[in-house]
């Protein structure tokens, strides 16, 4: 079943001067097609200003399409009546962990979403416990978010979205402000949710290493989807990626360079393990 279906999605940021005349138009999304199935892990890659965050905000109806159609969970995003139903089913996690935590106690922050959609009190307690457990933060339930590390805060934010029991979580560069440890924590939590709870994940990022475990990858540049396919398929096109100012994971790059030098190594190597095996097979 398709969870998200976008056809020729357009969004323009229009800047006007004081008289209301159009000064400049920035096309952030230019006829974007996107298909995400229920339970899939999709990554959207792109350089700064490629339109990937604008796309993410459309999926949660924080922005309305300027043209084209967008269906989320079988509902038309242009219809204002569907707004809350879509937001409830397509939760969103943002970049800055500090700016998305509302309450001053972890468990109360996780309860914020369910409170907004009118879940009864007993049920809120159950959901808070369940979602804090699912990201491994249950032992911090009574802590203040100010005392947590960046990765922990981001996991609390994910728990806050999980407590609304969405079918899909959209993560808009969730690791951009984290250190390597925090980044690993967050990605592990996300992968676990995808595998164990069958939550659809849309991960928006510019770190190539993070998309290796995705089912499919979209690459965006200048508001357009320029590449799509499996991580392996995408990373085998090292030169094209470089044109879009994206860095290939170091292991893939090493394999690519070795291959260029004439070694018999297959295309699209993603992990260190794969490279080791490929090299061992040569001798």
């Amino acid at each position: 079943m398709k969870f998200i279906e976008a056809r020729k999605l357009i969004h323009e940021y229009i800047r006007r001067d004081e008289e209301g005349n159009v000064e400049s138009i920035l096309t952030a999304l230019d006829e974007v097609d996107l298909d995400v199935k229920q339970g899939e892990f999709v990554a959207i890659l792109g350089h700064n200003g490629s339109g990937k965050s604008t796309l993410a905000k459309h999926l949660n109806v924080l922005l309305r399409p300027g043209g084209g159609t967008l269906w989320v969970d079988g509902k038309d995003a242009e219809d204002a009546d569907n707004l809350w139903a879509i937001r409830q089913n397509a939760g969103m996690v943002f970049q800055n962990p500090d700016n998305q935590i509302i309450a001053s106690v972890v468990e109360e922050d996780v309860a914020f979403g369910p409170e907004n959609i009118g879940v009864p009190t007993d049920e809120i307690w159950k959901r808070v416990e369940k979602s804090l457990k699912s990201v491994g933060m249950i032992q911090y339930r009574e802590h203040s978010p100010n005392k947590l590390s960046g990765g922990q805060k981001q996991r609390v934010a994910i728990a806050g979205v999980m407590a609304m029991e969405p079918k899909c979580i959209i993560l808009d560069e969730p690791t951009a402000m984290l250190d390597p440890n925090g980044r690993r924590e967050v990605l592990e939590a996300v992968e676990q949710l995808n595998k164990e709870k069958d939550v659809t994940i849309i991960l928006i990022t510019h770190y190539m290493e993070e998309v290796i475990y995705a089912d499919r990858v979209y690459v965006m540049d200048n508001g357009k989807v320029v590449m799509q396919g499996t991580p392996r398929g995408i990373f085998s096109q090292v030169d094209t990626l470089k044109d879009y100012r994206l860095d290939v994971p170091q292991i893939t790059l090493l394999a690519y360079e070795l291959r260029k030098e004439g070694l018999q190594i297959p295309e699209g190597i993603l992990t260190r393990q794969e490279l080791v095996e490929a090299i061992c097979r040569l001798y």
Partner: peptide
Amino acid sequence: AMEARCYHGGAGRTKM
């Protein structure tokens, strides 16, 4: 972030 988590004022809100 609050809007993304369905915040729409006090009406129909429950409490933990």
